[in-house]
Simulated scan of single mutants.
Amino acid sequence: MLVKDIAHTDVVTVEVETPIVDVARTMRDERVGSVVVVDGKGVVAGLLTDRDLVVYGLAGDRPVGDLVANDIFSTNVFCVAPDDGITEVVDKMHDEGVRRIPVMADGDLVGIVTLDDLLCHLSRELEELADVVRGEFPR
């Protein structure tokens, strides 16, 4: 299976100068745990998570009202392509210790794949395997 088969294409983005209070409201309203941060031209600059908001925003040294996304987002974000295999993505997530990865095609943001997406995919795969086992040993 490929990334494009499980990635969400409705990616929530904010601009680098978005106040973090507005970022938090966007995350709440959109019911997401992260947003992709883009520059003024729409180019991916990084990723900002709910954990970043707490650890670097609320618990930081500067007043929250003075902070914008650019002050606290993660810039060491790597991306995957829609045609990358799920196994490759799992390996990358494990190696990098991340839970979310933007999906890029030809330099454009086309989706995001999360640990939750992978777990849901895996649970479906395991259920299909369990069906095979149940079919072999009727009760």
Results as ranks from 00 to 15, higher is better:
residue 1 M to T: 13
residue 2 L to N: 12
residue 2 L to M: 07
residue 3 V to T: 13
residue 4 K to C: 05
residue 5 D to V: 05
residue 7 A to V: 06
residue 8 H to N: 15
residue 10 D to N: 15
residue 10 D to W: 07
residue 15 E to Q: 09
residue 15 E to L: 03
residue 17 E to Y: 11
residue 18 T to H: 06
residue 19 P to D: 03
residue 22 D to Y: 03
residue 23 V to G: 02
residue 23 V to N: 01
residue 23 V to S: 04
residue 28 R to V: 07
residue 28 R to P: 01
residue 31 R to M: 02
residue 32 V to I: 15
residue 32 V to T: 14
residue 32 V to P: 07
residue 33 G to W: 03
residue 36 V to N: 01
residue 37 V to F: 04
residue 39 D to L: 10
residue 41 K to T: 13
residue 42 G to C: 14
residue 45 A to Y: 03
residue 47 L to I: 15
residue 49 T to V: 09
residue 50 D to E: 15
residue 53 L to K: 08
residue 55 V to R: 07
residue 58 L to V: 14
residue 59 A to R: 11
residue 65 G to T: 11
residue 65 G to N: 12
residue 65 G to Y: 04
residue 65 G to P: 03
residue 69 A to W: 02
residue 70 N to K: 13
residue 72 I to G: 00
residue 73 F to K: 05
residue 73 F to H: 06
residue 75 T to V: 09
residue 78 F to K: 09
residue 81 A to C: 07
residue 81 A to M: 05
residue 82 P to E: 00
residue 83 D to F: 11
residue 83 D to T: 14
residue 83 D to C: 06
residue 84 D to N: 14
residue 86 I to V: 15
residue 88 E to M: 02
residue 89 V to N: 00
residue 90 V to Q: 02
residue 91 D to F: 10
residue 92 K to Q: 09
residue 93 M to S: 08
residue 95 D to A: 15
residue 97 G to H: 10
residue 97 G to M: 10
residue 102 P to G: 01
residue 104 M to D: 02
residue 109 L to I: 10
residue 109 L to E: 05
residue 110 V to N: 03
residue 111 G to R: 06
residue 112 I to Q: 01
residue 112 I to R: 00
residue 113 V to A: 10
residue 113 V to W: 04
residue 115 L to C: 04
residue 117 D to P: 09
residue 118 L to S: 08
residue 122 L to A: 12
residue 123 S to L: 14
residue 123 S to C: 09
residue 124 R to Y: 11
residue 127 E to K: 13
residue 127 E to Y: 08
residue 128 E to Q: 12
residue 130 A to N: 12
residue 131 D to G: 05
residue 133 V to C: 00
residue 134 R to T: 13
residue 135 G to M: 04
residue 139 R to N: 13
